[in-house]
Design a protein around this nucleic acid. Structure first.
Lengths: 343, 343
DNA sequence: GTGAAAGCGCTAACAT
DNA sequence: ATGTTAGCGCTTTCAC
């Protein structure tokens, strides 16, 4: 009983035309609500189409109209909550504007990422959004050759062919550090990401700037690189904690990393924020539910996704949106930060 | 400098044909590596195509071949980590098999879900996967009319036209309850989901079965309904805690709900598992990073997604996979469960 | 092994 | 207001 591959040819506008005793062009017009067709006729056609459960072929339509109303979204992995939120925003606007979205995970594998872009190109997507890409120049020139607009999210790409939406990583990270300094911390570390993401570089830069402005020492051993996930956070935090004189506060690249850091600290019977203060970045939904709730920099992830899609939509309609859209992070102070222990 | 809509007609096999001084049919054959074309010719064509940066049009190809090599995936929201993991698995296999995936969020809105399915139908997807659907009969008959295979995930759908992949919710929930009983708990509650999901009904059933088998009392006030997310978990746990004689352990519908429950308990200065034991369901990545780490039932989410796509692929190749694929949950005992407090 | 021709299901002139 | 015709860029007979 269960269905298998669609083999029988689907019903077409010609079939509808026959039943409605009009030409297929009239059906085509009626279905697109063209004012050129008589209301009476249009109504009859719509009725017949509905009864026949007719669904017009987007593929045939795309072939002639040279517009597919599809966009391609490349993420490293949708299992990363940051990307999931972003994609949720993208899909929301896409859906609203009549676009369907192709989702592809690159797994940070350059060859896979290239394959994915090729397939998007073959499918003639109208545009592409790339989030949190970790790929470099090779891929970049690939995208540059494409003749569709591309929007980068959380990847400030200097390429002049692209548009970007991002957060002010430098200022935001700086705000986190200054919050810590205001609390009285002097020994502050940075737990980053090893993949050389632009966002990590910027956050590290903000950290350094804040430390320097405050005349605070930046020790090599107070910093370590994770992998953007919880596991990497555990490892990196372990290294920081085993330094000769550990910091009293650590700014983490993102919330997932902070989650791991929290676990590493807990497993050494130290407490947050009693022994060490911690800040995250992103404000993922889980940040409210960690123990203690995480002080973090909120990124309007879903909103950024929505905006990226809006920019793409504007581009597709001949508008000229700003090349760079930058959001400000918002420091959310919860309970993972407090004055340093008195030594 | 930045590109906008793709307006100029892309290069076609005819263009390649001209440059290679062959007919476009030969180009078509060569590009599909047909043995019918002379190796020498094929090589030349490939070279020219590569140099021209030619990407064959999947839309034109689909029009004639009646196969799009695309599938549609409907989720309530990709921001739910469960769905994100599942989609990650689906995309993985799809990518491996040469399919592209359309992702659409239904937001549990029936009208939106219907629109989404219509658009999938228009785009002539080869198959559809629906995860964690909360929609009922209306939608069901819609899917039934489609002439493409559909696979339901985490939604045991009795419809005979469909295939399903799910977890044994009854047995799994039962295992969680029995674990608690083994620890010495007698007053055990169930924190469910208010949307009438089949999975919630089954887990509640497993809970009741375990309680009854053990001759334990099931009190109305020990149960409450959340919304599948953390916020709902907070509310529902609050209600359970304010009952006259609260349970010493609560089985939660899923991990996100447990996260909320954890927060509700914490905010009343009670501890887990000291005062109350808690179990989750899913084993989301964050379950390891809660405080305390969550005892939960692991669902092989990504694997289930992969399997769903494999089933679809088999269906599309005329195979006859099992109608129902059921996985066993695995109880992961961490630190959120312990013997009840001595009263 | 290669080419010519037909046609997939639409849209868009151009007629009427 | 409606019909006719010509493609869109491919695949696929059917000839040669």
């Amino acid at each position: 009983v269960c269905r298998v591959a669609r083999d029988d040819k689907a019903i077409s506008i010609k079939d509808i035309a026959r039943r409605a005793k009009v030409s297929h062009s009239t059906v085509s017009r009626a279905l697109r609500n063209s004012p050129l067709v008589h209301p009476k006729t249009a109504q009859r056609i719509h009725k017949i189409a509905a009864e026949a459960n007719f669904r017009i072929s987007a593929v045939a339509r795309s072939l002639v109209s040279r517009k597919t109303f599809t966009i391609g979204v490349v993420v490293t992995t949708i299992a990363d909550p940051f990307n999931a939120e972003v994609v949720s925003g993208i899909e929301d606007i896409a859906n609203e504007r009549g676009y369907s979205v192709f989702l592809a995970n690159s797994k940070s594998d350059p060859s896979r990422e290239v394959r994915v872009v090729y397939s998007f190109d073959e499918r003639r997507v109208d545009g592409i959004i790339v989030t949190s890409s970790r790929v470099g120049t090779l891929y970049d020139s690939l995208l540059a050759r494409l003749d569709v607009p591309v929007v980068f999210l959380n990847t400030h790409n200097p390429a002049e062919y692209a548009h970007t939406v991002s957060i002010d990583n430098i200022t935001s990270a700086r705000a986190a550090v200054e919050h810590l300094i205001g609390l009285g911390h002097r020994r502050i570390g940075y737990l980053g990401d090893a993949f050389g993401l632009r966002s990590d570089g910027d956050r590290a830069g903000g950290y350094r700037a804040a430390m320097q402005s405050a005349g605070l020492e930046i020790r090599e051993e107070w910093s370590a690189q994770g992998d953007g996930g919880a596991e990497g956070g555990i490892q990196a935090m372990g290294r920081i904690l085993s330094s000769s004189k550990p910091p009293t506060a650590v700014v983490c690249y993102n919330d997932m990393t902070a989650l791991g850091a929290l676990r590493a600290i807990d497993s050494r019977s130290l407490t947050v924020p009693g022994d060490i203060s911690l800040t995250g970045f992103d404000d993922l939904p889980v940040a409210q539910y960690t123990h203690p709730p995480l002080t973090t920099v909120r990124q309007p992830m879903e909103q950024m996704g929505r905006r990226a899609m809006e920019i793409l939509h504007e581009l597709l309609n001949g508008k000229k949106p700003d090349r760079d859209t930058r959001y400000q992070g918002e420091l959310i102070v919860r309970q993972s930060t407090a004055p340093p222990p008195r030594t």
